[in-house]
Amino acid sequence: MGIALQTFGLNKNFGGIQATADVSIAIERGARHALIGPNGAGKTTLINLLTGVLTPTTGRIELEGEDITRLPVHQRARRGLVRTFQINQLFAELTPLQTVAIAVAERMGRGFGLWRPLERDPKVMEESAALLRQFHLGDVMQEKTAALPYGKRRLLEITIALAARPRVLLLDEPVAGVPDSDRHEILDTVARLPDDVTVLLIEHDMDLVFSFARRISVLVNGALFVEGDTADVARDPRVRAVYLGEDVTHD
């Protein structure tokens, strides 16, 4: 299949603390890969390095073979490396329709259009509305985002990322705080993503990880601890000892 996203000896130091230690990870195209690790393992730092919020102290990041280590966040997004946020990052004053339309227009390279109103661009608006309906946001897409209930805002969080048509999608705890009733909507959509979209899932919920991921990387103290197929990692005694604890009774 080929490699979609790869890091080579990634290091990040904050003062004297090494938040990321020599992480080399390769994620295949179309992978359903999960990144797990206890709190403080450096998952957030790694995501920030991958998306360009932080620059690594040393090391290199490649997206589809292209070196993106020094690219700013928006350039990576334009190349198809898109993320969702653990804590919703939405445009509070805008409507879901406007929000998604902005992302779609940006992806189509129309973001610097100065004349035609965005809402009168049928191609952008139709795609946005369709995407929102698909995510059960059709009935609230004209309301102010800040006024939506949490479950809906969480859905919007994922929808925005998909509007950018990612090649590699980083899902940062996508169902965090989502009530069970709304959960499967998110999970279904994630599961139904096209096969050529690569997904890296960062998650605490082990049930979700084991049901979704085919491959798992375990991060401990900023370094890659174990990596392997889901079944192997689940059985690995070291992982159980360090991370999963006794309460995990997954086969």
Binding site: T51, P72, H74, V82, L90, A92, L94, R107, I160, A161
Partner: peptide
């Protein structure tokens, strides 16, 4: 204006 972090993340320069 509403969220600079997210704006960057969807590819807005």
């Amino acid at each position: 204006r509403d969220n600079r972090l997210r704006a960057e993340a969807i590819g807005i320069p």
